[in-house]
């Protein structure tokens, strides 16, 4: 048996040039994903150019990029982006910290779970936008109410993710820690934390997604700056290109922040037995 295992272990080192081939395959799938959006954009651009449509309500890509460029040139894009990013960052921070704490408490002790969870589940059922009027009364019409709304949006997925992750930690693995006489804090640090990390990262990412959703809601309901304000302003002044430009900015920043979490978490999750990684590794 040992002999067989040895050969198996050495097999991957035989085809070493796997790295460039992998990269080529990656590039090809990337290009394939671009075919549809680029094709549609080009087709629409052509249609407007040939005069089949005036492109007033659905601006062609060139007009959108011109608008974006103009917004960037005047510095408007940066002020609005900065305002929005700061709101999301503040709300995300508050939501993550509170969601993690409450989720950890509810996951760790079944008494507090029975006390907390029913109420929190009831609160979660409320569409978060419904909080807006109340938050405006409580926190005023400026930053605090917006941050609070985003924090509420981020809180629930993080809370659920942390609690669920703690509850689903394998009892058998915890027992290994006990058999090696780990103290309570050591058990948390060496067993529970690493075990919950993968689903925690997932809950952070879905929390961030909701954070971006809620910042738009908050800004649509009244803001003097921010990408959501750009959307609103575009509607009121009849500038569809500005609306699409703001949407593009949202997409780019949202994707980038999500990607940042993914990148930051990747080294911590290399051990995972995930289907998607199998092809790349080994």
């Amino acid at each position: 048996m040992t002999a067989v295992e040895m050969t198996l272990a050495q097999a991957p080192s035989i085809d070493l040039p796997a790295q460039p081939r992998k990269r080529a395959r990656h590039l090809r799938s990337l290009l394939l994903g671009l075919v549809l959006p680029v094709g549609l954009g080009a087709a629409w651009e052509l249609a407007v150019h040939l005069g089949w449509s005036d492109g007033r309500l659905v601006p062609p890509p060139s007009v959108i990029f011109a608008t974006l460029w103009e917004l960037a040139r005047t510095g408007e894009l940066w002020t609005h982006t900065q305002a929005t990013v700061l709101r999301v960052a503040a709300g995300f921070a508050v939501g993550v910290v509170s969601g993690t704490l409450v989720g950890a408490i509810a996951g760790y002790s079944s008494l507090s779970r029975r006390v907390l969870d029913p109420t929190l589940q009831a609160l979660r059922a409320i569409p978060s936008i419904a909080w807006v009027p109340l938050f405006i009364l409580w926190f005023g019409i400026f930053e605090a109410s917006k941050v609070a709304l985003i924090a509420v949006g981020v809180f629930f997925p993080v809370y659920l993710g942390v609690m669920g992750a703690i509850l689903s930690v394998d009892r058998k693995i915890v027992e290994v820690g006990r058999a090696f006489r780990l103290s309570g804090p050591a058990l948390v640090r060496r067993i529970l934390l690493p075990a919950v990390l993968p689903s925690y990262i997932v809950s952070l990412r879905s929390g961030l997604g909701l954070g971006w959703m809620f910042v738009v809601a908050a800004e649509l309901l009244g803001a003097s700056e921010g990408l959501g304000y750009l959307l609103m302003d575009g509607q009121q002044l009849g500038k569809p290109a500005q609306i699409v430009a703001a949407i593009v900015a949202f997409a780019v920043i949202g994707k980038t922040t999500d990607w940042l979490i993914e990148i930051a978490a990747a080294p911590l999750l290399r051990w995972q037995d995930a289907y998607g990684q199998q092809a790349g590794e080994a």
Binding site: K172, I173, E175, V176, R178, A179, F180, R181, I191, P194, A195, L197, W271, Q272, D273
Partner: peptide, 20 residues
Amino acid sequence: TAPHPKIGIIFQEPRLLPWL
């Protein structure tokens, strides 16, 4: 009454920690 330093245990499953 509690796990003892001189007593080790091997379970039915390996129970290795997958992140180490």
